[in-house]
């Protein structure tokens, strides 16, 4: 096998995990943009999505498409309810209170899942039956192909929604200035709920793709991808939607290439090291903005 082909394979692997990070990072960045908070329970929504898929497939014996739908619906409801119950009452509270609450929600989700499903990892077969493709000597697995297609569709439709629709511009308006948005007749609470709904639906998709990749579930499965995606969101510039996509992809690529060519043990250290470097040089992240007041 040629060295070039090997690099290409690692590159594609990086794109795969990177696009999942990007999907999750979008949830962090959108919620941050609109509610000015880091939703640390976001990673655990991935776990909820993964378990919902498992319940749909292995307990309710639903067809795959219905199990996916179940996972999407459950995550969306979780996202909206968590915002209403835990975060909305704290909207004018100091940021630290919100942060602690978010961590609390994260623990709550993990603990409840532990109570219901236990700590022993549960195997779950992938729903991707497609064997993959071969281009020349290069073989790309089915899950990789599916992941790349699904995440691309998600990112394009999300960008279209935010940039081109009335609801999307309302979201951007609320992110920028809630009071002024209210004066336009925009229901700020509904818009925030919608943002949590979209972010959670994306996390559900990430959860489904994650299960199909690793084929095993445990209550803490969302923690690591969650924190990596958070890093990706900060790397790209938290609050920026294209930044989250870029940050996710870059993170995935660095991770995959350093695992392959430097050291598996050091790969996380390299990933976080690059975050530190980027933040030293550009504290607002790659595509983040520093706002200036105009008189």
């Amino acid at each position: 096998m040629g060295i070039l082909q090997n690099i290409l394979e690692q590159f594609i692997n990086g794109l795969r995990s990177g696009s999942i990070y990007a999907l999750i990072a979008l949830g962090y960045t959108m919620v941050y943009g609109i509610a000015k908070m880091i939703n640390f329970a976001h990673g655990d929504i991935i776990m909820v999505g993964a378990y919902a898929l498992y319940v749909g497939l292995s307990i309710l014996h639903l067809p795959a498409i219905l199990a996916i739908l179940l996972s999407l619906v459950v995550c969306t409801i979780f996202g909206v309810v968590i915002e209403r119950v835990a975060y909305k009452p704290l909207r004018s509270a100091p940021p630290l209170a919100v942060l602690i609450t978010a961590i609390g929600v994260s623990f709550l989700l993990q603990s409840v899942s532990l109570l219901i499903f236990g700590a022993t990892p549960i195997p779950q077969e992938s729903i991707v039956k497609f064997a993959g493709i071969k281009i020349g000597g290069l073989s790309i697995s089915g899950i990789t192909v599916v992941t790349l297609i699904v995440t691309t569709i998600c990112m394009i439709s999300l960008t279209w929604f935010i940039q081109k629709t009335k609801m999307g511009s309302a979201m951007r308006a609320v992110a920028e200035d809630k009071g002024a948005a209210e004066l336009m007749g925009i229901d700020v609470n509904k818009t925030i709920s919608l943002t949590f709904a979209i972010g959670s639906a994306l996390a559900s998709i990430a959860g489904i793709l994650y299960v199909c990749q690793y084929q095993s579930l445990k209550p803490t499965l969302g923690a690591m991808p969650g924190i990596k995606a958070f890093v990706a969101a900060v790397l790209g510039g938290i609050g920026s939607v294209p930044g989250a996509m870029l940050g996710g992809i870059i993170l995935g690529l660095i991770e995959s290439l350093s695992k392959a060519y430097i050291s598996t043990e050091l790969s996380d250290a390299i990933v976080f090291g690059i975050l530190v470097l980027v933040l030293l040089i550009k504290p607002s992240g790659l595509l983040g903005k520093i706002r200036k007041e105009k008189v």
């Binding site: 951007r172 308006a173 209210e182 004066l183 336009m184 007749g185």
Partner: peptide, 27 residues
């Protein structure tokens, strides 16, 4: 609530203008 008042026919130009800086003029 504020967002229900606009449709009654009352508009408010806030202090400091508060235009949405990252949105286009048309938006």
């Amino acid at each position: 609530p504020g967002h229900k008042i606009v449709s009654l026919g009352m508009a408010h130009v806030p202090e400091g203008r508060r235009v949405f800086a990252d949105l286009s003029v048309l938006e």
